[in-house]
Amino acid sequence: MSIKFNYSTDKSITIDQLKNYLDSTNISYSNREDLNSCALKLTELYNNRNFLADILIEELKNHNNIQSSNNYTSQVIIIESNKKYTIRANIWLPYANNLEEKKLYAYDNYHDHNFDLLTLGYFGPGYETILFEYDAEKTYGYIGEKVNINFKEKYTLKEGEILFLEKSKDIHLQCYPSEMSVSINIIMNEFSNKKSSQFEFDINDSSIKRILNNQSSKFLIELSSFFPSENLFEVIKTISVKNPYDYIRLSCFKTLLEMNKDSTTDILNYIRKDPSKLINSHYLKIVEQNN
């Protein structure tokens, strides 16, 4: 569930002190004391009103190689990223008529994350976020699936305030800020649920609208059905067993069935043995259709 923090302290820390804290402490957001402690450190970083400008100076000094390892869109600045955690700054601009600029942001997009997110309002009036909750344990994860979505509240991430969003539970939508705003995120990478999908939701219809992660893999797998070969079949078969994402394995099974329509028994056995609720429900649909 989402949690809000608004600590009051005069203490100020540098970004290196925050990194040292995260490096030397086994932080788990599922532990409330750890979460409170990490939120307090973010408050102390907020009190350092120069740290982000200092980072920009260092980045611009190396202008031919700015953010070379940043796989996010251009409004995200990676401050630190390693196996344990990621610290990033998100830049939020007011309403834009430019379509390309709109694509950079998650505005007008109700979505969840497969990682816990602790975020600080660092600069500007902040974006308003509309918060909902759903139960991932009761969700299969296919497009069009009806989901029990519950409205929680509207909240503006103001300067100095901190918001925690729980992975695969909290759904949120960011609204345009009135002026340019900056948030600072800490993501504990070692506790991210990389096996879970991230979804965009249709709030009005209470359903899953889109799967947000690994869409390139899904597309290439489904494309393979048009170019059947024994080697390609074996590659996709391997992915169907080893890939951690339910919907990627489901795409593999669908493609394998399409590539080998004359002999589906072995493939159906793979589908039947898969532990995923999503894939198991697909198996039952195939059995019903064949009876």
Rank of each mutant, 00 (worst) to 15 (best):
A106H: 13
N64Y: 13
P228A: 09
N31W: 00
Q174N: 15
P244D: 09
K11A: 07
S74T: 12
L163G: 01
I15R: 02
D205S: 15
K84Q: 05
L93V: 12
D16P: 00
C175H: 12
K209Q: 12
T25A: 02
L117N: 01
L22V: 02
L268M: 15
N260T: 01
L220I: 13
L118S: 01
Y176A: 03
L56W: 13
G141A: 05
K11P: 00
L223F: 11
K169W: 00
Y110W: 12
K41T: 00
L284V: 06
L223M: 12
G160Y: 04
C252K: 02
N280Y: 08
L45H: 00
D135G: 05
E222K: 15
G141C: 06
D170P: 03
I271W: 06
R272E: 15
L56A: 14
N148Q: 13
L250P: 08
S229V: 03
D246Q: 09
I248W: 06
K4D: 09
S196P: 01
Q174R: 13
Y95C: 06
S196K: 13
Y21P: 01
E145K: 08
T73C: 11
S8L: 10
L163S: 03
K11S: 10
D170Q: 03
S30D: 13
S24K: 08
N82T: 02
F51I: 03
K154C: 10
E230Y: 13
N62F: 04
E153A: 12
D10I: 07
K218Y: 12
N291A: 08
K254Q: 14
T156S: 10
I236S: 07
M1S: 13
H282V: 00
G124I: 01
F227A: 05
D34M: 00
D135K: 07
Y270L: 15
K195S: 15
L35D: 01
D108H: 15
E159C: 06
S276V: 06
N214C: 11
I66C: 05
L165G: 02
N114F: 12
K242A: 13
E161T: 04
T264Y: 04
Y127Q: 10
E222F: 00
N114A: 07
N82K: 03
A136V: 08
K237C: 06
D54L: 11
S216R: 09
H172I: 04
E133Q: 11
E258K: 15
I66V: 13
Q198N: 06
N71S: 14
T129L: 08
L157H: 01
I267S: 09
L118G: 02
S263I: 00
Y155K: 06
E128C: 11
F219Y: 14
S81W: 00
Y176K: 04
D10C: 02
N109T: 13
V147K: 08
Y105N: 12
K285T: 09
L284N: 15
F233H: 09
D108K: 14
L40N: 01
K195V: 01
I171Y: 04
Y95M: 12
M188Y: 03
Y110F: 14
L212H: 07
N98S: 14
P228H: 06
S216V: 09
T264C: 08
K254D: 07
